[in-house]
Every structure is written in structure tokens, then in C-alpha cells.
Design a protein around this nucleic acid. Structure first.
Lengths: 207, 207, 207, 207
DNA sequence: AATGAATGAGCGTTCATTCAT
DNA sequence: TATGAATGAACGCTCATTCAT
């Protein structure tokens, strides 16, 4: 019964509908890209009137923000899960790489992230949210890196985590859903693990 | 001198105008992103009427194609230049990495590539052009890799070139123009060279 | 104390809210004009939900009617006050002119009356209410005129009262709130008194 | 051949259509009032598509401005005509009053001016145009007044002209088209002439 | 008495495109 | 080549109103 006890706040049916709207919106974003994204299409997918959509999300920007929050929260939870448990650090690194790189194969990730990158370049709010997500992403990596080679300085850890996460993201457009090199995903994981581990253990990272 | 027939003369007025239009269009794409891209705005930037624009480029798609060709040709020339000359292979690898990673800092590259990646996901023609460009990109890398470690199989070379190019592309959104980690560009180049060279020389690449 | 039955009690909660709504609506009309008047904005100003507003006033027309009644009643009371008391008729005429012309300077009068005149032209109900108000207005003037020059016929009295009231109304847009000639208000009063009195006393009024 | 000689500027058919649009817009304003005025209705009345309307008038404000210019120019021409010719000043005053007061009976004047007064209160540009028109109006009156009584000071002339024009405007809502007192128009003209002339000749005007 | 949910029409405006000039 | 004229669909958004809660 979240914030619904008194006379204020959305009704239960309203919260459900908002979820439905966000799902419809994300599906549309995946299917058509942001340059073909419109509130009309969202309302059609959700099976509601345009007026009702605007009742739930005052503006397009509001809906976009809600979509972003919804999308990012999934990844944040994943990162949290990946940083929990008691596992040897190298093994954890492998697990992380396996998970995030395999995730690139998914339709949703393949199709949504390029939209986010593009939007980030033209919308401060989006860029802020995306930046924050990547920060959390790197935090998981940094924790892992520090445990593998405790001699690394903070700056070195920072840099290698940045290098790792950026390198991984770049594969989206090559091994993503229905892309040309999806079948090389396993090999990519191997090369990532091998080369990243070398960087970390050798300590050959600029200060 | 409105003579416009034949193939002679460096800048026939028609071609000149087409160039102007394409430049205006690219500028618009950079400034506003494809989701805010419209023929109207292009014609305004080019200082011509909408009707005239459509005389030179029948449809939006036609203009997009011309833009793409124009954009990609620049990179193709760069790749060609990078593969020429007589340099020791490792040195050449370094030069390539330096060049392509430094290029990520440029406004144009930072802002255009996410648009291309996004468009690739929803437009076959764009994806074809972009794929072809990356193929040429990898060809340069492959040539270099093969010379550094001649023992690698064709498949290994393919894979490591894919891994390298993908890793580099991923940095666009982190060390690009006005992005948060631009100042780490030099370090990124170092880490890329170190780790890629390790992969190549160790031969630790899946078959 | 949600007791709401019967006619007792000065401010039953329902009436209170209705008053609040009407005040908000009038303020909106003053600030934005009828062409920017909407129930949505009224409900926002009143700090209530749209649904609740429509609970108190079924339709936009209903609210408009209530606003009109509220607005006009103020003027009717003024007219009543102006016609009471024992004063020499010329002195009373002066008082009336002073009062009604000075009232044109007020923000509310300046901004509301043009809206009423405009609405009168397209809404029978509004025109009826406004006409009735002006009738009462003229009644006060007629009473005064008759006492100043008892020789005037009913028709003459009617005509001069019409001429006087119409002439005065016309100054709204010139000496009204924040208008260009507000500082001439005193002079206008003088000219009105002088010329109207001449008309009345000379009896030079068409039959 | 106004501004249409070269390759630029509107075509003849375009100018004609713009006139048609303005006429349709004015008719709509008269029939429904500004609070019911919409570009869609204008385009329907003009028998053209919405897109085409927006081709001729970029925004609603642009159309409004063009309408205003068109409306006001008619009155300006009238004022000019009224101030021309060689007539004894009193006779000219009578002619002016007859003309402007009789004009109040016309449908167009009756219905448009209240809209202008209302709009003036909420739109600086409209208020500026309307103010300028009334200035020209008073200029005609001032010239006439000065000739009837040359002893009046500039300020007195100013004030009496203001008083006269304002008084006349006020009759719009009473003796206008299909209003209750249209049949008193002649009498109003008489009273106006009598009382205004008294003010002017007696010189009984505040300094 | 009061909320939020929902509708359907309408708003001003932008868009890609076609066509006459 | 180049313009302006014209279309028809779509856009984000506001509106008055109805209704379930």
C-alpha cells in the first residue's frame, strides 16, 4: 500500500496503467527508435486515449524520464547482484564479463543503448541518468579490480575500469541482437577476460 | 557562366549546391540529432527553399544516403592513409590506435556515430553502409595484426580485429567531445595498445 | 462539522468553496481574458481537482453564469447606494459621475468589461445579464435627471440617460487601469459633468 | 507590380489567397468572437488546407497582425477622407459625428471593436495598433476643435478630443448592430453634437 | 465532497512531399 | 534551377466533460 492510504495519490489502477504505458513506450522505442517515437503511437500500443496518456504523463519529457528510470533500475539491480556473494575476485571478474557481454545479445539492450547514447548527446537529463548508471557499473568493476591487484592506485583502478566498461559497450553494435558477429560473443568474452586480466595483473596502467 | 553540361570543371553549380546541402544536413545532424532532423531545417540552414532542396534530393532517404556516403568517405580515406607507408607493424598499430582514438574526441565523431548506430538498428541501408565501413576499418587492423604475429590463423586475426575495433568504438561515449573522460584519452590509448598487443603477441585468442 | 443541510449558518463549506472557485475564475478572467479562460486553469487556481470543480459547476456555462451574477451584484449594490440618501440632485449627479468614472480606473473594471461586451455579442445569457445591469444603471441616472429638470419627457430622460451611461462606458479603454490616459480621469469627470448638465438643463434633447 | 519583379516574393495567386484568408479570418472573428477563433476554422472558411494557411501565415499571431492591419487601414482611410475638403468647421464636426456614430450600427464595427478592446488588454501588439488608430482618430477631431474655438490650449483640445472619441466609442455596445438602442442612433448624434459643441465653444474644459 | 481515470475533439504547428510557375 | 503554393498526415498538448472510486 505505497502512498495510497489517504485520499491523495494515484489509485491502484492508475499505477498499473502507468506501468503498462511505460512498457508500451519501451517496446515502441525498441521497435522504431526514438526518431519514430511519438506519444500517439505509445497510446495506441497501450490501448488508451491520447488524453489519458497525458493524464498519466504530463509531457513527453515526463514519460521519457519515467522510461529511463524504469530501464536503468533493471541494470542497477543487476550490478548490485553481481557485486554480492563471496567469490574469488578473478572468478567474479569472469562472471561479470560473461554476464554483461552476454546481455549485449539481448534485443532490448542492443536496441535501447544506441538510443540512449544518441539522446545523451542532446538531452542533459538523459545524459545525467546514463552517466550515473555507468558510474555504478564502474563501481562494481573497480571493486573487483582492486581485489585482484591491491597494488594499483585509485587512479589506475579508475582508468582500467573505464577502459573495460567502454570496451564492452562498444561491442553492442557488433555482437548485439541480429547483428553480424553475434556468434563470436563467447570469443569476445575470452579476449576481454584475457586482456583485461593482463592489464590488471601486470599493473601496466598509466598513472 | 551557367554552363552546366558535360563532366568537366571542378565545381559545377549543381554539385556545389549539393555539397552545401549535405554540409548543412550534417551540421544539423550534429547539432540536433536525427530525432530532430528535418528537411525543412536543412533547407533553412542551406538558405534555400524547401522545393529546391527536394529538387536536389528527391526524398529524405536520398539525402540521408548522400550524407552517409559523404561522412563515410572521409573515414575510408583515413583508413587508406593509415595502411600506407613502410613502418614496422607494431609502430603502425600504435599510430592507428592513436589516430582513431584521438579522433573520438572530435565533435563530429562524438555526435554522429551514436546517430549512425541508432539508425543502423532501424534502417537496412544505413546498416549496410556502416557495416561496410567497419569492414574496411578491420581490414586495416587485420593487416597490421597479421604482420605482428604471423602465426595467428585467419579466424584469430578476424576475432582480435573485431575485438579491437569494437573496444575502441565503445569509448566514443566516454572520452568523446565534451564528455566526462576526455582528459583520459592518452591513458586509454596506452591501455589499448598494451592490452591489444598482449593479445596479439601471446596468441591467446580463441579459434 | 460537515453539516450542510438547511439554510442556516453563514458559510456552509459548499458555499465557501463555490465562492473560492468564483473568485479564482474572476481572477483568471482578469489576468488572461476569456479567450484564455479554461476550467482547468480555474481548478488549478482554486487548488482543487478538475473533477471537483465540475461537481460544483456542472458546465463551463454554469460557472460563467455564477461569475456574472457575482460580478454584477457588486455593481447593483453600488447603484443602490448611489441612489439613496437625501442630496440635492445636481450634487448627486456629480457624485454618481465621480464614482462611476473613478471606478473605471480599477483593474477589475478595466479588464472585465471588455470581456463582457465581447461575450455579450456571442452569448445571449451574458447579454441579458449585462443589459439588465445597464438598465439599473440608467435607472439611477434617470431618477437624477428627472429631478434636475422636471420638464423633460420620459423619452428625453431615457435618451439622455442612455447617452450619459454609454459615454462613460466608452472611457474604460482610455482612462482604465494602466491605460494611456488614466491621468486625465479628473478632467474627464469635469467634462462629463459640464456637458451632461448642459444637456439636461437646456432640455436640448430630441424627443 | 509591387515587389514581384524578380524571382523573389509571393506570387500573384499567393497575394490573392492571403487576402482571402484575411477576409475569412475577419468573418470568423465577427461571427464567433476571438474566444472561438481558430486557425482550423479559418482554413475551412477559406477552403484551404491547414498546412497551406500556415504557409501564408507562419503563426496565429502573424495572421492576427495581418487582420489588424487590414481592419485598421479601413478606418485610417476614413479618417483621412473626413479631414479633407473645405467645409466650415462646425459643419465638419457634424459630418464627422454623423459618420462615426452611424458606423457603430454596422455589424462589423459592432462585433469587432469589443474584440479589439479585449485583446488590447492582453496583447501588447494589438494594443499598440489600436492605440495608434485612436490617435489618428483624435487628430481629426483635434483639428476640427481647434478651428471651432481657436482660443483653446493644446491641452484643452487634447482633452476634449479624448472625451469626444471615448464617449462615442462607448455607444458601440448600446446602439450597435442588433443592439437594443439602435433606433436611438439619430438622437445620440444630436446629443453628441449639442453637448460637444457646447464644451468646445464655452471653453469650459480643464487645463 | 473530492479524487484520479478516461475520453474524444480540437488546438497551433511541423512535416515530407507534390506541383505550378 | 529555383521559387512559392498546396496538401494531408502527424505531432505534442489542452480542453470540457463523464465516471468510478
Amino acid at each position: 500500500m505505497p502512498n495510497n492510504s489517504g485520499a491523495r495519490g494515484p489509485y491502484k489502477s492508475g499505477l498499473k496503467k502507468q506501468k503498462l504505458i511505460i512498457e508500451s513506450a519501451v517496446d515502441l522505442l525498441i521497435d522504431e527508435g526514438y526518431h519514430n517515437f511519438s506519444l500517439r503511437k505509445v497510446s495506441q500500443r497501450a490501448g488508451i486515449s491520447g488524453g489519458n496518456l497525458q493524464h498519466h504523463f504530463k509531457t513527453k519529457e515526463d514519460l521519457l524520464e519515467a522510461m529511463l528510470d524504469s530501464l536503468i533500475s533493471v541494470y542497477l539491480e543487476t550490478f548490485k547482484a553481481l557485486s554480492e556473494g563471496q567469490i574469488p575476485p578473478k572468478e567474479r571478474l569472469r562472471k561479470i564479463l560473461e554476464h554483461v557481454i552476454l546481455d549485449l545479445n539481448s534485443k532490448s539492450t542492443t536496441l535501447i543503448f544506441p538510443e540512449l547514447w544518441s539522446l545523451s548527446n542532446h538531452d542533459k537529463r538523459v545524459s545525467k541518468s546514463v552517466d550515473k548508471m555507468y558510474e555504478r557499473y564502474r563501481a562494481v568493476l573497480k571493486d573487483c579490480v582492486a581485489k585482484i591487484n591491491p597494488k594499483l592506485s585509485t587512479l589506475q583502478i579508475e582508468k582500467v575500469a573505464l577502459f573495460m566498461s567502454a570496451s564492452i559497450e562498444g561491442h553492442t553494435i557488433f555482437i548485439g541482437y541480429k547483428r553480424n558477429w553475434t556468434h563470436h560473443t563467447k570469443s569476445i568474452i575470452e579476449m576481454a577476460y584475457t586482456s583485461f586480466l593482463f592489464l590488471i595483473e601486470s599493473g601496466n596502467i598509466p598513472e
